[in-house]
Design a binder for these strands. Structure first.
Length: 483
RNA sequence: CGGGGCGUAGCGCAGUUUGGUCAGCGCGCCUGCUUUGGGAGCAGGAGGCCCCCGGUUCGAAUCCGGGCGCCCCGACCA
C-alpha cells in the first residue's frame, strides 16, 4: 500500500475503488480516531478531538447567542421515566444499554444509560416550572449518549457518541414552533458557514420523525459517494412530554396549562460528514474555520543551514500563531517530503515551506491542500496574505461542495426512474409524493431510497404526481439513500 | 439480526491446503554515520501466550470441537 505515484504516497485506498475502505483509511491515517476494546466504541484521538472542540465552539457560540444556557443532566435515567412516553420508548427501547447492578448489589430499578435526555430533563422541568414567568426555559447540554447499535462505523454510528442536545419549554405552540425553526437555522448557518457543507433544509415525514415528536425538521447533506446524511435535527415536541411528565404552568389568564417543548441536536457524526464531503484520495481536507491546525510550517533545513532556517521558521511561527492555529513541524527525523504527505493526509488547509532559497529571496512558499498549487509569497505582510488564502480555501470548499450537490440533484417522475438513478448515480432526487406512508415504504422497498425531507423552500421543480401511486402529489420531496 | 472477510511483533501481512529447521517478511522502533525543496541511504540491534479454551497426535500457527473479538456489506437508528 505504500507504493508511490506522482510523488504522492498512497496509503489510502482510492475513493473510486472502495468508498467505505477509503473512509476508514482516512479516519485512521488522519489520526482522528482509534478503535477501542468495546464493540462499536472508539477513541477520539487528540487531533480528532481538537476538530470536535472547534466544531463545539462554533456551534456553542451560536446556541448562546440565541439565548440558551448550558447545563448538565445525569447519565442515568430510571427505567420508569423512559417508559412514560409511549412512542419514545418504542423508538429507543431496542438500543438502550441498562445498568442493573451497583457494585455487587442488584438495583431495585434498572437504570438506562441515556440514549437521549428528554425524559430526565422533562422530569426536572416539571419541578422547575410553575408560572408563565418561568418560561421559556432554554437549556442546552453537551454530553455523551449511548445507543446499542448493531452495526457501527467510526463517527457515523458508534455505540457511544458525543453531541449537544437542546431542550426548551415554551408558553405557546407558536413560540415552540418558532424555536424549532430558529435552531434549525442555527444548524444550517453553522454547517454551511463553518463546515462549508451545503444542506437541504426540510421537514421529516411521519415515518422518519423523532420518536415522540409532533414533527421533526432536518438539514440533509450529500456525501461525495452520493448518499445523504442527516446533519442535525430539530424537533417540535408539542405537549407530548409535558403531558406525561406533568409539566404545567399557571398562565396569565389563571389557567393551568401544559408547556410546549422542543429539542434539537447535532453529534460527532458531523465529523463523518466533514470527511465524506471534503476528503479526497490523499486524505482529509479540512475547512480552515474548524481545522485543528490551519497552517503548518515545514522548514527545509539542510545540515549546514539548519540553524539559520529553523530560526527563520520559528520567527515565522511566532508571527502567525498570534492570529492563526499554527504548527511548526521541526522534527529532525523526517524529511520534508514525508512531512508534506503527512500533513496532507491530515487535511491541514495550508502549508508554508521555508528553506535556504526562500530566505535568500525574502519569501516563503504557500501550498494549498485543495489543488496543491505552490505560490511563492513575500515574507513581509505575510499574515494578511495567509488569512486571504484561508478565506479563499474556505470559500472554494463551499463552492465545490455546492456544485457537487447541485449536479447530483435530479428529478424523477416514477419509481422506475428513481430506481435507475439510485442504481447508477445516487444523489438527491426530487419527486412528487402523495403524503401516504404506504407509498413512502413501497419506494424504499423498491429503490433503497428514503424521503430525506420535505423541503421548506421551493426546490425549483415541482412533482405533479406521486412517483409511487400516481395520485396527486401533495409535496415535492427529496429522496436519497442515506447513512 | 442476516451475508461476507479477518484474528501470527506496534502496524500491514506471508506461512495453514499437504502437522516436523517455521517464528518469517515489509513498514515502524532503537544505535551510529551520511542525508534533508514530494514518504532518504548504509550498517548494526530490540521486539512473539501465532485470539482464547478443549481435543487429536510422538509433535499443532497449521487438523477437529467450542467460544470471543474486530472489520465490511445489507435491514433499523444520529
Amino acid at each position: 500500500m505504500t507504493e508511490k505515484k506522482d510523488g504522492f504516497v498512497k496509503e489510502i485506498t482510492p475513493k473510486s475503488e472502495d468508498f467505505s475502505q477509503w473512509y476508514v483509511d482516512v479516519c485512521r491515517k488522519a489520526d482522528l480516531m482509534d478503535y477501542a476494546p468495546v464493540k462499536g466504541c472508539m477513541v477520539i484521538k487528540p487531533y480528532g478531538y481538537s476538530l470536535w472542540e472547534n466544531i463545539k465552539e462554533g456551534l456553542d457560540r451560536r446556541i448562546k447567542a440565541t439565548g440558551h444556557v448550558n447545563a448538565y443532566f445525569p447519565l442515568f435515567i430510571p427505567e420508569s421515566y423512559l417508559q412514560k412516553e409511549a412512542e419514545h420508548v418504542e423508538g429507543f427501547a431496542p438500543e438502550v444499554a441498562w445498568v442493573t447492578h451497583g457494585g455487587a448489589e442488584e438495583l431495585h430499578e434498572r437504570l438506562a444509560v441515556r440514549p437521549t435526555s428528554e425524559t430526565i430533563i422533562c422530569a426536572m422541568y416539571s419541578r422547575w416550572i410553575q408560572s408563565w414567568r418561568d418560561l421559556p426555559v432554554l437549556i442546552n447540554q453537551w454530553a455523551n449518549v449511548v445507543r446499542w447499535e448493531k452495526a457501527t462505523r467510526p463517527f457515523l454510528r458508534t455505540t457511544e457518541f458525543l453531541w449537544q442536545e437542546g431542550h426548551t419549554a415554551h408558553r405557546t405552540a407558536e413560540e415552540a414552533e418558532e424555536e424549532t425553526l430558529r435552531m434549525l437555522e442555527v444548524y444550517r448557518d453553522f454547517v454551511e458557514t463553518d463546515l462549508s457543507i451545503p444542506v437541504v433544509v426540510g421537514r421529516k415525514t411521519e415515518g422518519e420523525k423523532f420518536a415522540g415528536a409532533v414533527h421533526t425538521y432536518t438539514i440533509e447533506a450529500l456525501m461525495s459517494d452520493g448518499r445523504a446524511l442527516q446533519a442535525a435535527t430539530s424537533h417540535n415536541l408539542g405537549q407530548h412530554f409535558a403531558k406525561v411528565f406533568d409539566i404545567t404552568f399557571l398562565d396569565q389568564d389563571d389557567q393551568l396549562k401544559h408547556v410546549w417543548q422542543t429539542s434539537w441536536g447535532m453529534t460527532t457524526r458531523i465529523i463523518g460528514a466533514l470527511i465524506m464531503v471534503h476528503g479526497d484520495d490523499r486524505g482529509l481536507v479540512l475547512p480552515p474555520k474548524v481545522a485543528p491546525i490551519q497552517v503548518v510550517i515545514v522548514p527545509i533545513a539542510p545540515q549546514k543551514e539548519r540553524e539559520r532556517v529553523l530560526a527563520e521558521a520559528r520567527a515565522l511561527q511566532r508571527e502567525l500563531e498570534e492570529h492563526l492555529r499554527t504548527h511548526l513541524d521541526d522534527r529532525d527525523e523526517y524529511t520534508p517530503g514525508w512531512k508534506f504527505n503527512e500533513w496532507e493526509m491530515r487535511g491541514v488547509p495550508l502549508r508554508i515551506e521555508i528553506g535556504p532559497r526562500d530566505i535568500e529571496r525574502g519569501q516563503v512558499v504557500l501550498v494549498r491542500r485543495d489543488g496543491g498549487a505552490k505560490t511563492p509569497v513575500s515574507r513581509s505582510g505575510l499574515v494578511d496574505v495567509v488569512k486571504g488564502f484561508l478565506d479563499d480555501i474556505q470559500k472554494s470548499r463551499w463552492q465545490k461542495a455546492k456544485q457537487f450537490m447541485e449536479e447530483n440533484t435530479r428529478t424523477a417522475g416514477s419509481v422506475d426512474e428513481l430506481k435507475a438513478i439510485m442504481e447508477d448515480k445516487r444523489g438527491f432526487v426530487l419527486g412528487g409524493w402523495c403524503g401516504e406512508g404506504s407509498c413512502e415504504d413501497a419506494v424504499k422497498e423498491e429503490t433503497g431510497a428514503t424521503i430525506r425531507c420535505i423541503p421548506l423552500a421551493e426546490p425549483g421543480w415541482k412533482g405533479e404526481k406521486c412517483i409511487c401511486c400516481g395520485g396527486h402529489a401533495s409535496h415535492t420531496v427529496y429522496f436519497a439513500r442515506a447513512y
